[in-house]
């Protein structure tokens, strides 16, 4: 497709498991095991799932901060999987990351201007010091921070402000793709809304494309155009936001939506408590066939034997489930 900014095809990230005196490889953890999706220019694609589903590993592999084991990543029409570390650098200018923890992600000994301005310096994008400072002021203003706070250190800022600093740093190189890994989950509720609004506003102003990773379904629903649901290293369903929330097809998606309490006691009292049992199994030893089958209320015999394939067309969405076999 022509409007695709990022295409991820059959991505696999396997970590070797070593044991014993000789550290022989005895197996592997298939953290990401055959993930495919596509980001269109200007959209927000949400990636949701519980811990260990591989959503953050997928993001790091797209940036090649973790080496993919297999698969192709095509960004702005260019296959980035074959690039060397050095040539990756210029590509990484165009894809940036906003991290979860606004406390851990910023170097406490650096002034805010150095944190935001570091990428500019590394890539040699400021002619001189005054141009550098001007760009930093511009970026701070863009994310709603007062430029005269540039001389301060991270500890002088609140959590929400620190996340703004992280966003300003990510935007310094004018990326086209911003990967947001749980950008608001460490923030207080009243501050989450401010940061979400900022992200929405920046997307409109700068025509950014977001890969938005989160476990909070209501936040993902709010910000995403399309959503992919991951379970144990695989995508089980991809659909438009409204389709996914109104008509979830995969039993795991349904279970996930049922488990989220709604902030409305009236609705909650009328809602059947329909919870799935069990917990996400270890990635090290995933179930055969469909990885969800041991917890699935609708599992059939085939589910433990055959891996369901993700299929379907964009308007209706894609699903990987034997209850919804490919037609024809």
């Amino acid at each position: 497709m022509t409007d695709a900014l990022l295409q991820v095809q059959d991505l696999k990230v396997h970590f070797p498991v070593r044991e014993g005196l000789l550290q022989r490889e005895v197996g592997s953890v298939k953290a990401v095991d055959g993930v495919s999706f596509e980001l269109r220019r200007g959209e927000t694609f949400g990636l949701v799932g519980e811990s260990g589903c591989g959503k953050s590993t997928t993001a790091l592999a797209v940036l090649r901060m973790i080496e993919p084991t297999a698969g192709r990543i095509v960004f702005e029409g260019e296959d980035v999987t074959g690039h060397t570390r050095a040539s990756m650098r210029s590509i990484r200018r165009r894809m940036q990351m906003v991290y979860q923890d606004p406390f851990g992600a910023l170097n406490p000994r650096m002034k805010v201007q150095d944190i935001i301005g570091e990428p500019l310096a590394v890539h040699g994008l400021a002619k001189d010091r005054s141009a550098w400072r001007a760009r930093i002021s511009e970026l701070m203003d863009l994310v709603g921070l007062l430029p005269d706070m540039a001389d301060r250190y991270p500890h002088e800022f609140s959590g929400g402000q620190r996340q703004r600093i992280g966003i300003a740093r990510a935007l310094a190189l004018e990326p086209s793709l911003v990967i947001c890994d749980e950008p608001v989950s460490a923030l207080d509720v009243s501050i989450q809304a401010q940061v979400i609004n900022l992200l929405v506003e920046l997307q409109e102003r700068l025509r950014l494309t977001y890969l938005f990773i989160a476990h909070d379904l209501s936040v993902v629903r709010h910000i995403s155009d399309r959503i992919g649901v991951m379970y144990l290293g695989r995508i089980v369903e991809v659909a438009d936001r409204d389709t996914l929330f109104k008509n979830p097809r995969h039993p795991y998606t349904q279970a996930l939506l049922n488990a989220v309490p709604l902030p409305d006691p009236e609705l909650e009292s009328r809602r059947p408590e329909n919870l799935i049992a069990g917990e996400v199994p270890s990635v090290r030893n995933p179930p055969t066939g469909c990885r969800f089958h041991p917890r699935c209320p609708e599992a059939m015999e085939v589910c433990s034997q055959e891996v369901p394939v993700l299929h379907g067309e964009p308007p209706t969405g894609q699903v990987a489930c034997h209850l919804h076999p490919p037609s024809g």
């Binding site: 009243s190 506003e201 379904l217 629903r221 709010h222 409305d264």
Partner: peptide
């Protein structure tokens, strides 16, 4: 200020916010 799982998002993608800091 909380996004919800029901209701309509189409209207506005802006959430109401409480201004200022904790």
């Amino acid at each position: 200020s909380i996004p919800t799982l029901d209701g309509d998002v189409e209207g506005s993608r802006r959430l109401a916010t409480i201004p200022g800091q904790p």
